[in-house]
Design a binder for these strands. Sequence first.
DNA 1: ACCTATAATGAGAATGATTTTCATTATGGA
DNA 2: TCCATAATGAAAATCATTCTCATTATAGGT
Lengths: 146, 146
Amino acid sequence: MTNRGFDREVEARLSETAVRYTSGRRRVVGALAAADGPRSADELHRELGSTVPLSSIYRTLAVLQTANVVVPHFSAKGVTRYELAEWLMGHHHHLICIDCGVVEDIPIPQPLERQVRELVEVIGSRVAFKPVNHALEIEGTCGRCA
Amino acid sequence: MTNRGFDREVEARLSETAVRYTSGRRRVVGALAAADGPRSADELHRELGSTVPLSSIYRTLAVLQTANVVVPHFSAKGVTRYELAEWLMGHHHHLICIDCGVVEDIPIPQPLERQVRELVEVIGSRVAFKPVNHALEIEGTCGRCA
DNA sequence: ACCTATAATGAGAATGATTTTCATTATGGA
DNA sequence: TCCATAATGAAAATCATTCTCATTATAGGT
């Protein structure tokens, strides 16, 4: 419920481009902040008890993505799930359930994280590709689907 | 053009479940073997000069996925791209272009790979999740979009 | 080679997540 | 308070993908 103060930061970020932080948008951000992993428009719609229309949620997510407040995660059946960007959530990685598609956030140990970061930098210096982000995606079967 | 002998292995795998390795399926596998990263049904359709109907490509990919010959990779706009499974391609990771969505395969150094594998195993032993696969996904801007 | 049961194919319809449209409503600043 | 502009909600439009079904091809068994 605390929202971890995200509202303040999100509002500031949006105001930079004259985007309004309305109550519907607040509720979407709140639901994402309360989630333990990425959520689809439909999941948010249900979790918010249909207080925000589906089409508004889609638009809100697009707006938030443009403002770099949320980041998309693509999963099976053409479903896109979103989560708060790392400058709000902190860096993390993903456990992805092969069966139900649910994604859970996890941290990884500092030392390994440092090595991964270095590797990403090395790759960026060797190939025609400019890295801006990275994540270790671990696919498998989640507890509920086991 | 050599197809790296995949045909033999794929045919053997398919025959285990009485699935036929027809010429259309051969062409799809050939196109995937020639690619440097995952390809969507539509991309394969174009790369094959429309010699295989789009609906057949979709079905072929579904069949190949069931047989564990290909693996899906979900990207923006609800597009699913496929690539040959790691028992054919070898283990690798991904460079993902944020702008155009194209994915390129890359290897990572042995030592780091070993650590990552160990980490994945540790995670599997600690949380209610059974890992079966993993990949480091590096997002950024590719040469063509720079 | 000839049947026959079964698998595969191709064209188009159907589906479902997402995007767009457009008329209406809400908002922040002069 | 007023106004220019942004946001909203409902419904139509889009687009990748899946499904349907009539037709064609294939592997065995004879």
